[in-house]
Every structure is written in C-alpha cells, then in structure tokens.
C-alpha cells in the first residue's frame, strides 16, 4: 500500500517496504504499515507470517535489508539500537512473560520507571516519593498491590503477564508492542487483559499480535492480516474474516 508523504507527520509509526531475509528465506517481504497516534491495532497471521520479525524490526533487534521504519514525525528507527528505541518511547512485551525473577514486583517496576538509565546515575540513585507514587499507581492498575513484595519468580503466569504490562506502563511509552498477551491465560484473565489494554490505549498507541480470535474480536479494533511477510488484508475483524484471501490462507490448502 502506498501512503502520501505529506501524511507522515500525522502518523505514530510508519513502515514502508520493509524486507528482512534470513539465508534466502524472506521473513518480511516489502511490508508496509501505518499506525495513527492513539490507535490500537491487532496483527494476526499464521505461523511464520512475520509477526515477530516485524516487532524485532520496530524495536531495533533486527535490521531490515530494505525499507524504512519511521517513528513519530521523522525518527528513523533503522538507525537506532534497542535501548535508544526504548528510550524514544516504544515498549515491547514478549510472548513469554519475561520479568526479572529474583527481584520483587516493586523492584521490577522501579527498574522500568522512566528515568536516567546510565550507570553513574543508578549507582547512587535513591527512590524518590514521586517514584513511589508512580509505582503504587501502576500496582493498582495491574492489580498487584498485594503482591508488591513478592519475588516476581513466585507469581502466577497471569500475574507475570500483568507485571510485564505494568513495567511497560512504567516506561511511559507512546507506543506499546504486545506479543500474544493472553496465551495461556484463563478466560477471566483474558477478559481482564482486554480491559487493561483498552485502558492503556486511551493514552498511547498499541500494537497487539494475537492468535486468539475471540480476544481480537473482544478488542474491537482494526485488524491487519500478515501472510508470508506482507499484508494480506486489513480492516475490521468482520471485514478480514470475510476476505476470501484470508479464508484461503487460514482454511484452504
């Protein structure tokens, strides 16, 4: 899909013709995607469609062979590494919950709080009252206030997922990338997670990669279907599930 250049400044994230290949295998094939500020987008697609690679490209883990990735007005993400991109305000939640297990819930959030990341600062840093307030707020949002002094490693799977989302909130990102947030969750937890994401979406852009169609439907947002590294279809959940190309990829062959 093409996009008028003049509109770039109004977008939050803009991928244009991104191609990534590993040993001849094209994980992303001229992928283009536009995300408006404050938008929530669901990305679906079969295994190997390039969903995770797309996240890797946006967060600086993988460099694209071709194409551009622009964040905000004119920041070229392909020139930056992971910490720099994180500092710009792009948070990422991994498929498997990755929290710092030996640390308490509180310390996990403390490490994630926006602030100076340099060793010379952290060596002497002390918790400030405003930091404590922020952590309390987030603890309330992710419903872990009671668990604040427990080791993150001792939390349940769902609690870890939330803690990770809480850590993302603590980063105060403008854009959140969430990879399969409800995998392995109970129905109740899934519903709560959908609620949480909608809440987050009030103030920032969110990209959700998900397999669970019920969950995607519950989110009720624009859906992009990826297939073999490029966009197959885009639109509302009803629109894409009626698309014959999507039906063929998911059910055919």
């Amino acid at each position: 899909m093409s996009h008028p250049i003049g509109a770039v400044s109004e977008t939050l994230l803009y991928l244009n013709g991104v191609t990534v290949s590993f040993d001849g295998f094209r994980a992303l094939n001229s992928l283009s995607l536009v995300l408006e500020p404050g938008e929530m987008r669901a990305i679906i697609g079969p295994n190997g469609a390039g969903k995770t690679t797309m996240m890797d490209v946006i967060t600086g883990k993988t460099r694209p062979d071709e194409g551009s990735v622009v964040f905000g007005a004119d920041t070229d993400l392909t020139k930056l590494d992971e910490p720099a991109i994180a500092a710009l305000g792009i948070g990422r939640k991994f498929q498997k919950p990755t929290v710092f297990e030996p640390h308490t819930v509180w310390d996990n959030l403390l490490l994630a709080l926006a602030g100076d990341r340099r060793p010379r600062f952290t060596l002497l840093a002390r918790e400030t009252p405003s930091e404590r307030r922020r952590i309390e707020e987030i603890l309330a949002t992710i419903r872990l206030t009671e668990q604040r002094h427990r080791r993150a490693g001792d939390l349940s799977h769902g609690q870890k997922q939330w803690l990770e989302i809480g850590m993302l909130l603590a980063q105060q990102p403008q854009l959140l990338l969430v990879d399969e947030p409800v995998a392995g969750m109970t129905d109740a937890e899934t519903a709560q997670t959908a609620e949480l994401l909608r809440e987050i979406n009030r103030t920032r852009g969110v990209v959700v990669v998900e397999h669970d169609m019920h969950f995607v439907r519950a989110l009720g947002v624009k859906v992009t279907v990826l297939h073999e590294g490029s966009v197959l279809s885009e639109g509302s959940i009803d629109h894409v599930s009626a698309d014959p190309k999507v039906v063929e990829v998911y059910l055919g062959r």
């Binding site: 994180a86 948070g91 030996p102």
Partner: peptide
C-alpha cells in the same frame, strides 16, 4: 538491580532502555 536484570535477561533489559 539492573546488573542482576542483565544477568538473567539481557535482551529484556535492553528493551527497557538500559
């Protein structure tokens, strides 16, 4: 604390901006 985070999950720490 950051150091231990690095020890256990270096890439996660990187995505946090460290």
């Amino acid at each position: 604390k950051v150091l231990i985070a690095v020890r256990d999950s270096e890439s996660r720490t990187r995505f946090l901006g460290y």
